[in-house]
Amino acid sequence: MNLKLRVWRQKNGSTPGKFVEYQAPNIVPEMSFLEMLDVVNEELTRRGEDPIAFDHDCREGICGTCGLVINGVAHGPLSATTTCQLHMRSFKDGDTIVIEPWRARPFPVIKDLVVDRGSFDRIIQSGGYVSVNTGGTPDANAIPVPKTVSDVAMDAAACIACGACVAACKNASAMLFVSAKVAHLNILPQGQVEKERRVLNMVTAMDEEGFGNCTNIGSCEAVCPKEIHLDFISQMNREYAKALIKRGK
């Protein structure tokens, strides 16, 4: 099939960018979206035009590196699917595809479709861990954890930090990402000791990075490739207030 692409091109963070149109001829449905871009890039290189920069690594939906806004939807039209797992059979011959980077102040564009998500790491640094050093830990079976609890923790821990939730949220809010990490650790017995500190510090870090706040819209949940759900946001709201009250005493 033949497609028309409108791609955001931007040399670097300090130069303004613009949309550029490209033809993508002879695309086959078996290609992944990123393979389609590979093909376009090889053709651009042959023509002596700078190829389109985009982020990717595992190409199997787990590392969270890839991420494009495709026709206005973060990670494209298929639900619960990362950009690298999206295949061209989701498009038809003659389609125009608009491709943009994640847009958020805390995700500045580095080049073309590549953004800097260092803000996510800094949020984790503020408290997204259990403070145990290596060694000296009790036997793994010393503390039984109800299966239901560990299953929910796993649901939350499945987040791949791709940032699609931020990209899709009208307010560029990172609540889904942050709440998933808070939920993962705060629900487990191992995370109890630092429960309050964790949620307070992570929310502060999130605000300082310049993310928007949550007006409970739910676009984040709709685009999340790992189906992280809004309950975690609700849970974090509750835990935040509880933590403040507890600390106040």
């Binding site: 409108r6 949309f19 806004v69 026709n71 206005g72 939807v73 973060a74 608009v98 943009e100 847009r103 958020a104 102040r105 805390p106 899709a168 009208k170 307010n171 560029a172 809010s173 310049g210 993310f211 928007g212 706040n213 007006t215 409970n216 819209i217 739910g218 676009s219 949940e221 709709a222 685009v223």
Partner: peptide, 28 residues
Amino acid sequence: LVRINRRARPVGYNDNKVVASSLAQRTI
């Protein structure tokens, strides 16, 4: 809150549709 939210996205999208949202949510 609205000011923080506007600042959080200085550059918008080509088509600023909001996935999976209702009119009420967008116009609050």
